[in-house]
Nucleic acid binder design. Structure first.
Length: 271
DNA sequence: ACAACCGCCTGTCAGC
DNA sequence: TGCTGACAGGCGGTTG
């Protein structure tokens, strides 16, 4: 589910409300992707710091140390003063004196992992190898072009890999390539330097626009206050197989790359 | 170093 | 109605 915009929208929706809250209790449901790595009891009484984001991860400081959260494919966070009884897909809940932060994740690809610091394991290991943040000034055409050199996979897959730039998942990678007019099947190393500049800009713009729109709600994404996103209304290609391109009218095509669906306009997007 | 797969889970939807 | 298979917003691990 959640790509960078959804994670960022979630972060913004509860960061201020939870900052400074004192932990009363930690409740766990079924196991998530990895073990928590700390006893719930040991977190009681700690104060929540300023929630941060790195890529699609959230860092919830509970000095000394903190929790690294990932929403996986189907996870969402809710922060409420009074939470309803936990359901079968609620697998993590931090009860504080300001309210309850709860992770709901039907598929359980998500994770909540204790780490003594962001630059200590396991957080450091999970974050190692992540590319630049898309809104980092260092992320530009030159960085993207350099990152793509020597790579023979398709540009779409290289973008998705997240080691050059983080945050563009399946939806936004498709949308950014459309915006930049680049065929998703183009071999990564064959993207020219000028086109890399255009693609870097497109990635930034698409992600910024999606954050602005509150993220994409295809099925069930909601921010921590239950507000849905609306970027799906602006999607040009994602999920539009067979429908006319909004620019040229050519039917949008769906292909499979790396076992993921790619949507693109065969007329607007060139190799 | 890179690339192609696999698996983790559950829910939903299309087709028969 | 029920069954089956495809598919879903991510990503780490294994294999070649």
């Amino acid at each position: 589910m959640p790509e960078l915009p959804e994670v960022e929208v979630t972060r913004r929706s509860f960061a201020d409300a939870i900052a400074g809250a004192r932990v009363l209790e930690l409740r766990l449901g079924k196991p998530l992707r990895w073990p928590l790595g700390v006893t719930p009891q040991s977190l009681v009484g700690r104060r929540v710091g300023e929630v941060r984001r790195r890529g699609k991860y959230l860092w919830l400081p509970l000095e000394p140390g903190g929790l690294l959260l990932h929403l996986g494919m189907s996870g969402s966070l809710a922060f409420r003063e009074h939470a309803p009884p936990a359901g079968p897909h609620d697998h993590f809940e931090l009860l504080t004196d300001r309210g309850s932060l709860r992770l709901t994740d039907p598929r359980r690809f998500g994770a909540v992992v204790w780490s003594d610091a962001l630059d200590a394991d396991p957080a450091a290991k999970l974050l190692a190898g992540l590319g630049l943040e898309p809104f980092d000034a260092r992320f530009d055409g030159a960085h993207l072009h350099a990152g793509l050199s020597g790579r023979r996979v398709a540009i779409k897959q290289a973008l998705l890999a997240g080691d050059i730039v983080v945050g563009a998942g399946n939806i936004y990678a498709c949308e950014a390539l459309f915006r930049a007019g680049i065929d998703p099947r183009l071999q990564a190393q064959r993207l020219s330097r000028p086109r890399a500049g255009r693609l870097a800009l497109a990635v930034r713009e698409i992600l910024a626009q999606a954050v602005e729109a509150g993220g994409t709600t295809l099925r069930d994404f909601k921010d921590a206050h239950g507000v849905a996103g609306s970027f799906q209304m602006q999607a040009q290609v994602y999920g539009r197989e067979g429908e006319p391109c909004l620019v040229c009218g050519t039917p949008i095509r769906r292909i499979v790359q790396g076992q993921r669906s790619t949507y693109y306009c065969p007329s607007c997007q060139k190799r």
